[in-house]
Amino acid sequence: MDPLASAHAAALWAGLHVILLLVLSVLVTRQRRKHQVEIGDGGVPALTQAIRAFGNATEYVPTALAGLALLALVGALPLLIHAVGLTLFVGRVLHGFGLSRSIAATWPRAVGVLATWIAYVAMAASLLFYAFP
């Protein structure tokens, strides 16, 4: 196995998650400009949703990226890193999409949360496994 394969896998998912955060940030900016709100949500539901979609991603993604980087550092299999990264990415995209469209409990939000938690559990278990050589 290429010794950098794990790092390359982590880099892929880090890059995609950074792009996702940028897209969610742009959606907030678009709503701010559309409704002429400089700070806060101005009581505009669409802006509140965009802010929460971005905020929720910023609550989950950084920790997950740190976990993926640590998995790469300990030499976890690239397939494991790809599985966790993909699960997290799909979860975050679905959650962001669902929350951007509705404040109600929707299937994209529910599946997004579930996928995020599955990725977190798999990552935590893997990190603990690799912590004890």
Rank of each mutant, 00 (worst) to 15 (best):
V37P: 02
L20P: 02
I19R: 03
A64E: 01
Y130I: 10
A105S: 10
G112K: 07
V37L: 04
T87N: 04
V28S: 12
Y120P: 00
L47G: 01
G98H: 06
A10L: 10
G40R: 13
G67L: 05
P108W: 05
R30Y: 05
S6K: 01
G112P: 05
L86G: 11
V28N: 01
R92I: 10
M1C: 05
V26E: 10
R92G: 01
P78Q: 03
V93L: 13
V44K: 11
V74W: 15
V90T: 04
V37D: 04
R32S: 07
E38Q: 12
A131R: 08
D2A: 07
Y120T: 07
L16F: 09
A50T: 01
A122L: 15
S100H: 06
V74S: 14
F97M: 08
L127H: 07
I51P: 02
V26W: 15
A124F: 12
A124C: 09
G55T: 11
L24W: 08
A66T: 14
G55K: 11
G75M: 15
A69I: 13
Y130P: 00
V113P: 00
L22M: 14
T58L: 12
H95S: 06
Q31T: 03
P108C: 09
A64D: 01
I103N: 12
V84I: 15
V61S: 00
R92L: 13
A119D: 00
F97V: 06
W13V: 04
Q49V: 05
A115M: 09
V121M: 11
P108K: 07
L127W: 13
A125E: 10
T87P: 00
P3W: 09
L24N: 05
N56H: 12
H82N: 07
V18C: 12
W107N: 02
L79W: 13
V121Y: 07
F54Y: 12
T63Y: 05
V84Q: 00
E38P: 01
F54H: 14
L65G: 04
A57S: 13
P108H: 09
P62T: 02
V61D: 01
T63S: 04
L24P: 00
H82Y: 13
L88T: 00
A7L: 09
G42C: 11
A57T: 04
K34N: 04
A14R: 06
Y130N: 15
G91D: 04
L99H: 15
A110V: 08
R109D: 09
S25K: 00
V111W: 12
A64M: 14
A72G: 11
L47P: 11
V93K: 04
T29K: 08
W117C: 08
R101V: 02
R101A: 13
L24T: 09
F97A: 08
W107H: 10
A14K: 03
G43L: 08
I19V: 15
F89V: 00
A66M: 14
R52H: 14
L94C: 11
L47K: 09
L73W: 15
A50G: 01
Q31S: 12
V44M: 06
T116I: 07
R52V: 05
V90A: 13
L86R: 08
V93D: 10
T116P: 02
A119P: 01
P78M: 05
L88I: 00
V113H: 04
I19T: 15
D2P: 10
H17T: 14
A105I: 08
L24E: 09
G96T: 05
P62Q: 11
V18L: 15
R32T: 00
L16R: 08
H82F: 03
M123R: 03
S102L: 13
G75S: 12
F54N: 09
V111P: 09
T87Q: 04
